[in-house]
Structure formats: C-alpha cells, structure tokens
C-alpha cells in the first residue's frame, strides 16, 4: 500500500524522565513501522526535554517531534490535545500509540473524539493484518489489529479501526517488551511550534503532590506474590521473607489487595500491573483470569496452593500442592543451604 503515514508513539515524561511504557511502545512501534515500511516517530511534549532525545533514538525512533513550552508543564489535557491534534492533521500518521497510564487514558480519547478516529483501550497485543468488513463489504490491507481482553478478561477481542487514520490505541505498562537499546542509533529532531490560546489553558493546576512509585514490579526479575490464601495481613510477612531471601519483589493478587492486606501498588493483574519476570512465585493465589492476564508471560512460574485444582496450576511450570505456611519456610531454608 503506497503512501501510508508513519507510526507514532506519544512519549510520556515526568520532569524529563521518560515513562517506561513509552519506551516499551517505541520498541513495539519499531516492529510495526518495519513491517509497514514507514518511519517511527516519537511525539514528545513538555519543556526542557533535550535530555530525552537520544534515548528515543536508541530504542528505535527515526524522528522526534518535539514541542517545548512552559505551558506544557505540568501536564494538562487541553494544551496537549491541541498540539497533538494539529500535528496529526499536518502529518497524517497511520498509527498512534499511547501508554494506558492516567495521562494517556485521558488524553487519547479527547484526541480520538476530535479526530473522529477509533480508539481501543488497553491492548495486550498489536499486529498488522488485512481486514474484511463483511457487513459493509469493504476490505482493508495492512490494518492494525488491536487485541484486548474484554468482559472482565473473559474474552479476547480483535478490533480494527475502519475510519480515519490514525489508528489509535492505548497499551498498559509492562505489556510490550522493552527492546535492547542500540547506543549507536541516530535520528532527527523536528521542533514543533506550540500555538495555544487562552481557551486551551483554562484548567489551572493549583497544587500538585507526587512521589516516585515505591514499588517497581515491572523492573523486577523475581516476584513473590501473595493471594487470599495467605490468610491475613500479618501472615504476609512470609511473602516478604521469601522475597527478601531470594532477592525478589513482593506482589499480590487483587483479592489480597481488596482484603486490605497490602497496598494497590503491589497488585499484579489486569487492573494492576503486568509483569514478565524471570521467576514468579504465586503463593495462595487461585489464579483468576484477571490475575493470570498480568503474569502469564513470566518465564518460570511456581504455584503453591492447597487446592490441587486451582486454575493457577494450569499456567505453572512447578506445581506445589501444599500449605504455604510450611512450604515457604522450607524454600527459604533450602535456598540458604544451597547458596552456601
């Protein structure tokens, strides 16, 4: 197909630090752009961002569209939507990817609504394929297949945008794999003029309180996660002990979070974070579809559960049917013994 637009990634940043999900999307965007034979461009908004540019080249951007203006800090929706909308009309990208972060999830729909473009939330996979719209008797080549769970994770739907480009999606952090950076890769910066009027800046940030995330589950290579089977907040100490012993991070299922035993920041699953560690140890987690959606890509999974029919065992590489109160101390002991 001749003359199609480029692949764009909205690059989210906070005080000049690029969001992890944006780099993951650059990696995925690179694949899509290569498949389509087009360029990959990062769309970067904010102020004083020169420090971000090289990183974007290293992960695969051919070009960075850079809009710098003090009115773009801190992030508010209206000016961001205005700048990006203007860029879309000017450059006609084929695909536009957003992280499904709080920012991405309020910005992308605002833009899609104005552009009358389709938008699919929380995609877990993106592919290029043809699409036959049987109802309208139209066929499309090289469209973006937007794959996402729906209905509480019980079904997986493949969605296609049949209207105007860009084909827009959001993707949660941790779902796409981060590629290896190529430090020798170079690109080009295109400085974008920022034209805003008073109507774009009517929403004022009166106060902003923000702390860095306490937990970094996405970056963790080893995760020890506790579920409802842990039994109590006090007993979560076992999970922390094992994590500490083997050098892992602590995670949790939604049931444990809902029970108030651990903070939501630790939640793994469709409504928490998606992880793909080297080792995932699921302790007392039954394995709801929504939890499995967030950890099934782990390289090795150990599941400990008293119920031999727990669904988690269908994902596990190692199945331990037993009481975690006995199994975990044994694991700690055995690990320490083998270490010496």
């Amino acid at each position: 197909m001749a003359n199609i637009g480029n692949v764009w990634v909205f690059i989210e940043q906070e005080q000049g630090k690029i969001a992890g999900v944006s780099l993951q999307l650059v990696s995925k965007g690179r694949e899509l752009a290569d498949r389509l034979g087009v360029k990959l461009e990062g769309v970067l908004l904010g102020d004083n961002l020169s420090g971000c540019i090289d990183t974007l080249y290293h992960y695969g951007c051919d070009r960075v569209l850079l809009a710098e203006d003090s009115r773009l800090e801190p992030f508010t929706v209206l000016p961001y939507a205005k700048v990006i909308m203007k860029l879309i009309l000017e450059h006609r990208p084929n695909i536009l990817l957003f992280g499904a972060t709080l920012k991405g999830r309020e910005l992308a729909p605002r833009i899609a609504s104005e552009k009358l473009a389709g938008l699919t939330a929380d995609c877990t996979d993106l592919q290029i394929d043809d699409f036959e719209d049987l109802k309208n008797k139209k066929s499309y080549t090289d469209k973006l297949m937007q794959i996402r769970p729906a209905f509480g994770g019980n079904i997986i739907a493949t969605i296609v945008n049949t209207w105007d480009d860009p084909q827009m999606v959001t993707v949660r952090e941790g779902v796409m794999k981060l590629g290896e950076p190529d430090l020798s890769r170079k690109g080009e910066v295109v400085k974008v003029p920022v034209e805003l009027d008073d109507a774009d800046t009517v929403v004022k940030v009166i106060e902003r309180v923000r702390a860095e995330k306490k937990v970094d589950l996405q970056g963790a290579q080893i995760i020890v996660a506790g579920g409802y089977g842990v039994g109590s907040k006090e007993n979560f100490k076992l999970i922390y002990d094992l994590a500490e012993a083997i050098g892992g991070e602590v995670g949790a299922s939604r049931a444990a979070v809902d029970a108030g035993w651990i903070d939501h920041d630790y939640q793994v699953g469709q409504t928490g974070v998606t992880v793909r560690p080297r080792l995932y140890i699921a302790c007392g987690i039954s394995g709801s579809i929504q939890h499995c959606a967030g950890m099934s890509e782990s390289k090795k999974i150990i599941a400990i559960n008293t119920d031999p029919d727990a669904p988690i065992f269908s994902l596990a590489h190692y199945k331990i049917v037993g009481n975690l109160n006995q199994v975990i101390p044994q694991m700690i002991k055995a690990f320490k013994a083998k270490q010496q």
Binding site: A117, G118, F131, I156, T158
Partner: peptide
C-alpha cells in the same frame, strides 16, 4: 462506530 470487532475468542 469507527472500531469494528474482527474476532472474539474466549479465554
């Protein structure tokens, strides 16, 4: 609706 469902699979 610009978005069309191509396929649905149960998990």
């Amino acid at each position: 609706s610009p978005t069309k469902v191509k396929q649905v699979q149960s998990v």
